[in-house]
């Protein structure tokens, strides 16, 4: 069954995924809004950067982060001058890396949801003297809700499933950087297949449940839309 170190890893993973998802929703929603509405020539480059973690092997991201956040890297120099030390091997480092890594899974669904609304609702609201802030909170966000739900679930699940980047920059410290995926990897490498099975099965059930919930929710929402129109 699950040992104490397994439970520590599970708790750490949930804490990491929760923190990252919350931060990504706060940072990613305005970014998605901007990407959906802007005509700026920066839209292309910014979209590309946001999507990069989807196509880059996690080892590449982890390798560059290790250098970027290290004492010789720009980020490492910054955090050191602020008296924070360097980020690799710390929980804060994992949060930072996961923000980048899970960014596309949060930004893209929200961006798609906002783009799908079109401009009509917001324009109608504007003729009724709703300011931009008002329109964002009372038109755009509520209409983008299914996208935000998808983003939350995917962002959380993807961070839970993160492995390569964490392996590269984590340092495998119990309670600090040793998340479930790394723990499973350790069990497999140490030929402790029984322990690996328990944790892997837990992970599988978790991921399946999350995705099932997501798709059930989406279907119900689609049905509602069908009845009441967009």
């Amino acid at each position: 069954m699950l040992g104490e170190s397994d439970l520590t890893a599970i708790w750490l993973t949930l804490k990491l995924a929760g923190t990252v998802t919350l931060l990504l929703l706060i940072l990613g929603t305005p970014l998605a809004y901007w990407l959906a509405n802007t005509q700026s020539r920066w839209k292309g480059p910014v979209s590309a950067v946001v999507t990069l973690p989807l196509v880059l092997p996690p080892t590449v991201l982890g390798f560059y982060l290790l250098i970027f956040m290290g004492p010789a890297g720009p980020m490492g120099k910054l955090t050191e001058s602020l008296g924070l030390g360097t980020l690799p091997f710390t929980f804060a480092g994992l949060v930072f890396a996961s923000l980048l890594y899970s960014m596309p899974f949060v930004v893209q669904p929200i961006q798609n949801a906002i783009e799908a609304q079109g401009r009509r609702h917001a324009e109608v609201a504007a003729t009724l003297r709703a300011g931009p802030w008002d329109r964002f909170w009372h038109i755009t966000l509520p209409l983008a809700k299914p996208g935000i739900v998808t983003a939350t679930v995917l962002g959380f699940a993807h961070t839970v499933g993160e492995f390569g980047v964490i392996l590269m920059i984590g340092g495998n410290i119990p309670g600090e950087t040793r998340v479930v995926s790394v723990q499973i990897y350790d069990h497999v490498e140490a030929l402790e297949y029984a322990r690996a099975h328990w944790l892997s099965a837990a992970m599988l059930v978790f991921s399946f449940t999350v995705l099932l919930a997501l798709y059930t929710l989406q279907r119900r929402h689609a049905a509602l839309r069908w009845r009441y129109g967009p």
């Binding site: 290790l66 250098i67 290290g70 004492p71 340092g171």
Partner: peptide, 17 residues
Amino acid sequence: VVGENIAQTYQYVASGN
């Protein structure tokens, strides 16, 4: 800090972390 293998351990030290 623990590298998953000796190559990664080298990487931790070589990068100055």
